[in-house]
Amino acid sequence: MNLTKKRFILLLVTILSIVAPSTVRITTENASIPKGTIFMNHQQGRLMSKAHPNAVVIANHQIYTDWVFLWWLAYVSDLAGSVYIMLKKSLASIPLLGTGMKNYNFIFMNRKWDQDKINLANKLDEMDLNARGVGRINGNSPISGTEQGKYVWDESKVQNTDNKWPYWFILFPEGTNLSAGTRAKNKEFAEKSGLSSFQHVLLPRTTGLQFCLQKLQKSCDFVYDVTIAYSGVKANEYGQDIYRLGNILLKGKAPKLVDIYVRAIKLEDIPLYDNDKFHDWLFQVWKEKDELLDKYYKTESFQLDPELNYSVTGPCKVSILSVASILLFPVLTLLPILYLLSKKVGVF
């Protein structure tokens, strides 16, 4: 399944690199990510990375293909098959794609915490246990369950913990992408809650992210905080209106430059079990995103100090060998079929 998951994003990025190519500029914070972690492989003509496995990736949400660029970032880190994404439940009903995402064990949310909590806990427990080598992949199974449906595991039954499966868990704490409609609802919610709304991002939701980090605490090493900006979008515009899926796939209208700023936050530095402090921490992260985007819309750059940050630019594409791996299986499947058909009609 992980191999299928990897081939899906390889195929999607290959299609986009042909019909709607984009260049990506990735900037990392030197204090939390060693310089050169993301680098340009000139021999292959593409970006590569040595990012950590077992990480939660949080990002602002502007257009429907944000997750494609984050999944591609996992690919350059050799983690394309280890990606899990949190999505709104309505996406599960998309023909074909919805079924595929279910098979990939992506997590669909109703946005009603009482309905989501048990399902989320079970999914996260499996991710965490498999990453530590004591999950289903090692032959372990839940020994019981609560009345509410929460699985109970016994890790002591697993003797060999060498078989470990990493993860990159991607989620958007804003819950939806920025648009005129979501901005208005967000502003109304902020006023009712006594909060200050942001200019370029929506207010993040704390409950879900805090719960996820608590559940993954034993295996998660870092939270990768990602800020994404797109060329061609002005401060008073919305990326989702400019880069609609139809415009990207049918008209080839994609951002010429995708700016991605990444910093790593150690899980031990996040106040996971103090609700007020966690709220303040996450809102501070989002305030800094808002300030970065404000600079970007004014100057087309995050205006980061080059002494404190490292940037590398390259195309959003996959390796030629990866493309070949996508085609290999269908070609090998087709050849014997063609041979049998040719025998039937007497060609050979």
Rank of each mutant, 00 (worst) to 15 (best):
Y310K: 06
L341G: 15
G139R: 04
I270T: 06
S32L: 03
N30Y: 07
Y64A: 15
Q159I: 10
D259A: 05
P336I: 03
K89C: 11
S179H: 05
K344M: 09
Q240H: 12
P306H: 04
G246T: 06
N186C: 10
K35G: 08
G246Y: 00
H279D: 09
K6W: 09
G181A: 14
I260E: 00
L282T: 07
I58L: 01
N54S: 07
V223D: 05
W153S: 00
L213N: 07
Q199M: 06
S22W: 02
E188F: 09
L334I: 11
Y151A: 09
A92C: 07
Q210N: 12
P271F: 01
P255W: 01
S197F: 11
T206E: 15
F329V: 11
V345H: 11
L97K: 15
F222L: 10
S197C: 10
T14E: 13
Y243K: 07
V223L: 11
L16H: 04
W286I: 03
P336D: 04
K234V: 04
G194L: 09
K218H: 14
K35E: 14
F69C: 03
D259V: 00
N163I: 15
N41F: 01
V134F: 08
P173S: 08
P95Q: 08
R183T: 07
S93M: 12
D116A: 12
N2G: 14
K185H: 12
D114T: 14
S219C: 06
E29D: 12
A74T: 07
F172I: 08
R244G: 10
D294H: 06
T161Q: 12
W168A: 01
K35Y: 04
D274R: 03
G208Y: 06
M109G: 06
A59H: 06
F211V: 12
E307T: 13
V201C: 02
